[in-house]
Amino acid sequence: MGSTRLVVLLAAALMLAAAAFPAARAQETDHEEEFSYIIGEENGPEHWGEIKPEWAHCGKGEMQSPIDLSHRRVTLVRDLGYLNHTYRAAEASIVNRGHDIMVRFDGNAGSVVINGTEYYLRQLHWHSPSEHTVDGRRYDMELHMVHESANKKAAVIGLLYEVGHSSDGFLRKMEPYLRMIADKKDREEKVGVIDPRGARGRASVYLRYMGSLTTPPCTEGVVWNIVKRVRTVSKHQLELLREAVHDVSLVIFFFPSTGPIRSVFPPFT
């Protein structure tokens, strides 16, 4: 039991306390027409920080996400414990934001406790391909579960996916709604009660680092928690998500980060 418990508790730590950073609102811009993921365009990632004064972090920030989760930067910490969550089924809506598909929880979907702070689940959304890479490898999809504390600080749990023979159970339940809002930018539909526990899964080992929102305003001070276990998504499900936002292959812009990564051993082997 001792060795098993050790493996479970090998989690990521913060070198700097979250309180040392400005409160990061768990709010990304919903106005896709104001920015683009395409490098070289006037409103592309390299120009995000110039579009609006309040987006300055996108160009000048020092703790920007996403990053490459390189094992050479990982430090083992043995005493952080679980990502203790108390998620629950809640009323939700699905929104086609043009650059991604978001499930927004209109009711109380529960929370996760990180370093003694309770962060409430506000929404989740998908990116394809993944925004974060692991030792330079980009995965087929990444799910972000976005949380916000009572003090408006943000924490995100990220899950990585690769295409395989089996489909993702949570996405399978969402497929009818994805078809409903496909090709309808800014379309929003009520989807009834959704249980986020199906999206989170049970994996316990994760990496943590301090970063930012990955779309404007690129606010820093976000506590990132990337789950170690890579999950499986079907090719059909991936195509459904991409087609819903007219995306053949999303171009992701990477920002440098000076933040430390603390995590499990062995990291992403």
Rank of each mutant, 00 (worst) to 15 (best):
Pro196Trp: 11
Asp183Phe: 08
Arg197Asn: 15
Ser204Trp: 09
Ile38Asn: 11
His47Ser: 10
Ser257Glu: 02
Arg187Phe: 10
Val191His: 09
Gly158Gln: 09
Glu142Arg: 05
Asp68Tyr: 02
Asn96Pro: 04
Gly59Gln: 03
Thr219Val: 12
Asp79His: 09
Asp195Glu: 11
Leu171Met: 13
Val193Ala: 08
Thr75Met: 13
Thr29Arg: 03
Arg88Ser: 15
Asn225Trp: 04
Met1Gly: 14
Glu189Pro: 01
Asp186Ser: 12
Leu143Pro: 04
Lys153Ile: 00
Ser128Tyr: 03
Met63Ala: 15
Lys185Cys: 05
Cys58Gly: 11
Leu213Asp: 06
Lys185Trp: 07
Gly136Glu: 02
Ser3Pro: 01
Thr4Ala: 14
Val156Lys: 05
Asp168Met: 00
Gln123His: 06
Ser93Gln: 13
Trp126Gln: 05
Phe170Gly: 01
Tyr161Trp: 05
Gly2Gln: 14
Glu46Lys: 10
His47Lys: 14
Leu159Pro: 00
Thr133Gly: 07
Glu118Asp: 10
Glu91Gly: 05
Ala89Tyr: 02
Arg200Trp: 08
Ala92Ser: 11
Arg122Trp: 03
Lys190Asn: 13
Trp224Met: 14
Ala182Thr: 12
Ser234Ala: 08
Tyr37Pro: 13
Met174Cys: 02
Val230Gly: 00
Lys60Pro: 00
Glu175Gly: 00
Arg25Cys: 01
Glu239Phe: 02
Glu62Thr: 15
Leu207Val: 02
Met141Ser: 09
Val191Trp: 10
Gly164Glu: 01
Ala199Gly: 14
Gly116Ile: 01
Leu124Arg: 04
Ser263Asn: 07
Leu143Glu: 09
Gly259Ile: 03
Ala20Phe: 00
Ala12Asp: 08
Ala92Thr: 04
Asp186His: 08
Ile114Lys: 11
Arg78Ala: 15
Val251Tyr: 06
Tyr119Ala: 08
Leu16Ile: 00
Val146Gln: 09
Leu171Ser: 04
Arg25Thr: 05
Val77Cys: 04
Val233Gln: 03
Asp68Pro: 06
Asp195Thr: 10
His127Phe: 11
Thr4His: 13
Ile39Leu: 09
Met63Trp: 14
Gly44Leu: 12
Gly2Ile: 15
Lys60Asn: 09
Gly169Ala: 11
Asp195Phe: 08
Ile157Leu: 07
Val251Phe: 04
Asp247Val: 13
Arg73Gln: 13
Ser3Thr: 15
Arg25His: 04
Ser36Phe: 08
Asn225Arg: 09
Thr215Ser: 13
Thr75Tyr: 09
Ala19Glu: 14
